[in-house]
Design a binder for these strands. Sequence first.
DNA 1: TTACTCTCTGTAGTCACTACAGGTGCAAGG
DNA 2: CCTTGCACCTGTAGTGACTACAGAGAGTAA
Lengths: 128, 128
Amino acid sequence: MLKRGDVARQLDCNIETVRYYEGIGLIEPPQRTQSGHRIYDGDDVARLRFVLRLRDLGFPLEDIRALLATVKTGDYACADIAVIAEHQLAEIRRKIVDLRRLEKTLMRMTEQCHRGATPDCAIIEALS
Amino acid sequence: MLKRGDVARQLDCNIETVRYYEGIGLIEPPQRTQSGHRIYDGDDVARLRFVLRLRDLGFPLEDIRALLATVKTGDYACADIAVIAEHQLAEIRRKIVDLRRLEKTLMRMTEQCHRGATPDCAIIEALS
DNA sequence: TTACTCTCTGTAGTCACTACAGGTGCAAGG
DNA sequence: CCTTGCACCTGTAGTGACTACAGAGAGTAA
């Protein structure tokens, strides 16, 4: 039986994030002590870890919520999950493509720069 | 002389963004008509385009603000600009590395999945 | 004149947290 | 037993970079 701070330490997330996820209904409210302190059992921790792993894979919280709901019913096909995961994979690849384009542009710009002590800068030129 | 909507169309940005940038002091307030409508001249548009290009390169607005202030004084060395640009380049590369790691993880997970009609899913397994 | 579009203002909502203020609970040291 | 200090409780506000909306005034074409 862990308290909120213990859980946060164990899963390496911010203590406030745990309360936030409960507030928006992403995880179930845990048991409380008589004085009102939250106490988390092994299942609570496992469910939060599941959420955090998806988050760390870049899934938006709404997608995580939907995935949780699907998994909870048990009424889903493995193929459905694969579709969701591949959608997320496509999102990530799109972002990589975007960033690589930015990287190229910035690289070209910095290469042009003679790094002088005067304000006639190729970078500023390129932006104007 | 263009109105706000014209500027937004010309620079392909949201009309509200123009007002927002004025509100946070990122661009100077333009002239107004007698009735209070904003009117933008060529210089106004050029300055906004400069800001939008930096934004599209992923610079945070605060960095753009600082860059604008520096360029405005004219008292800067080309080398300083190069440092800022290379810092941003490093940021972008860091993000690419992060995303490529996520991509690999998700790829491995989806490859494991047999895409069946039952709920015994390798992806869910991997997350639990 | 009427109808329609554009602009004006201020404010609230988005996402995913994060930080803070002001108060209670709990556990260990003296 | 008392105090000290940390962990926890609640609600709320702030972050970044917009985006959307409500309600009112301005401009234009038929």
